[in-house]
């Protein structure tokens, strides 16, 4: 865990139903415990019906002013859907980091033929970005008893916590305290899976 962390600006992105708000809620509990000031702004729109969801998450040792992060000031883009990752690449600082799933929910306007699909592979476009990036392909981690696509939010939380060197015990405690009891076990499994994938990825780098 880095010392003297005065705060970070994070954009969490995806589509409706991916649990973006749960992710930012769980993460906020961690930073609150550390005594940071926080502002979290959710742009939901018609998320449930195929729309994008974005959460501007800011923690700081000083009071946070704007609820929206100015493009160019973002430290981390954490995205659960790769079209949405592309939408926020321009907001990253030069040394900002991308965490992205390769999961894709095709845009409704492309499905219906209103818009042309992007000719390039979205995953390749993300890989070509100047920023440091960590990419999770859910298909590589699928198993019969665990639908990783449905749990990507908590998988990503585990991944992010490992990347930042945070205490997994503290984080798992937060998961326990904040998800309904019947989902605790599944969420802890997802969290540990994420931390696991991160350990392998980070070691490989």
């Amino acid at each position: 865990m880095e010392t003297n962390d005065t705060g970070k600006n994070i954009i969490i992105a995806g589509v409706g139903g991916q649990g973006i708000l749960l992710f930012s809620n769980l993460l906020s509990k961690y930073y609150l415990k550390l005594g940071y000031e926080l502002k979290i702004s959710d742009v939901i729109g018609l998320g449930q019906r195929g729309g994008g969801v974005e959460s501007h998450f800011r923690y700081s040792t000083k009071p946070v002013l704007s609820p929206f992060i100015k493009a160019g000031d973002v430290d981390y883009v954490i995205s659960f859907e790769q079209t949405e990752t592309l939408r926020f690449l321009h907001t990253l600082k030069k040394d900002g980091v991308i965490f992205s799933s390769t999961y894709e929910l095709t845009s409704t306007s492309v499905n219906t033929g209103l818009q042309k699909p992007m000719p390039e592979s979205k995953t390749e476009l993300i890989k070509a970005a100047d920023n440091k990036k960590y990419i999770i392909n859910p298909d590589e981690h699928k198993s019969a008893d665990f639908n990783i696509s449905k749990m990507m939010n908590v998988v990503m939380l585990g991944y992010y916590a490992e990347f930042r060197g945070y205490s997994h015990n503290d984080m798992i405690q937060i998961v326990k305290e904040n998800v309904p009891e019947k989902f605790v076990e599944g969420n802890i499994k997802a969290y540990e899976k994420g931390a696991d994938i991160a350990r392998n990825n980070l070691a490989a780098k």
């Binding site: 589509v15 018609l46 019906r49 195929g50 729309g51 994008g52 493009a71 079209t83 592309l86 939408r87 926020f88 690449l89 321009h90 907001t91 845009s107 409704t108 306007s109 492309v110 219906t112 209103l114 818009q115 699909p117 992007m118």
Partner: peptide, 10 residues
Amino acid sequence: PRTDVPFRLP
């Protein structure tokens, strides 16, 4: 932002 990322209609 990139202008070629498809938008999402509900």
